[in-house]
Simulated scan of single mutants.
Amino acid sequence: MRERICSKVSCDREAVATLTFDYEGRQAALGPLGLGNDPHAHDLCALHADRLQVPQGWTVLRHAAFAPR
Rank of each mutant, 00 (worst) to 15 (best):
P39S: 12
T18A: 13
V16H: 07
L30R: 09
H48V: 00
L44G: 00
Y23A: 13
A17W: 03
R69Y: 00
A29L: 13
S7D: 14
D43T: 05
A17G: 09
G36F: 13
A17L: 11
H42D: 08
E3D: 11
G25L: 14
F21V: 13
D38K: 06
V16A: 13
A41K: 06
I5K: 08
T59F: 06
W58C: 03
C11H: 10
K8N: 10
R26Y: 13
T20S: 14
D50T: 12
V60W: 00
H48Y: 02
T59A: 14
R62D: 00
Q56L: 06
D38A: 14
L61C: 07
D12S: 14
T20V: 15
A28D: 05
G31V: 04
R2Y: 05
A46R: 07
A67H: 04
F21W: 14
E24Y: 11
A46N: 01
A49T: 01
A65H: 01
Q27V: 12
H42L: 14
S10D: 13
W58Y: 05
R26A: 13
W58V: 03
R69A: 06
A15M: 12
L52H: 01
R69E: 01
A17V: 07
A41H: 04
C11T: 14
E14R: 11
D22F: 08
C45E: 00
A49D: 00
R51S: 04
G31R: 05
S7P: 04
L35N: 09
A41D: 01
K8C: 14
L52I: 03
G31A: 15
V16M: 09
V16Y: 08
R13D: 14
W58I: 04
D22Y: 11
T18S: 15
P39H: 09
T18W: 10
T59K: 11
P55S: 05
C45T: 06
H48D: 01
S10I: 04
N37H: 14
M1W: 11
C6M: 07
A67Y: 00
A29C: 12
G34Y: 00
A64Q: 09
H42A: 12
W58L: 06
D22P: 05
H42S: 13
E3N: 09
H48S: 02
L61M: 11
T59R: 11
Q53H: 09
I5R: 08
C11D: 08
I5D: 02
V54K: 04
L44T: 00
F21D: 10
C45M: 10
K8P: 00
C11L: 13
K8V: 15
M1K: 08
W58K: 07
R62M: 03
H48M: 04
P68E: 04
I5Q: 09
H42G: 08
P55G: 03
C11F: 13
L33F: 07
L19C: 12
R4M: 06
V60N: 01
I5H: 10
R2A: 15
P68I: 06
K8R: 13
D22V: 05
K8W: 04
A65Q: 02
A28R: 06
R13M: 12
K8F: 11
V60Y: 01
C6L: 09
C6G: 05
G36C: 14
L52M: 04
R51H: 08
P55F: 02
T18H: 08
G25T: 11
P32K: 08
A15T: 05
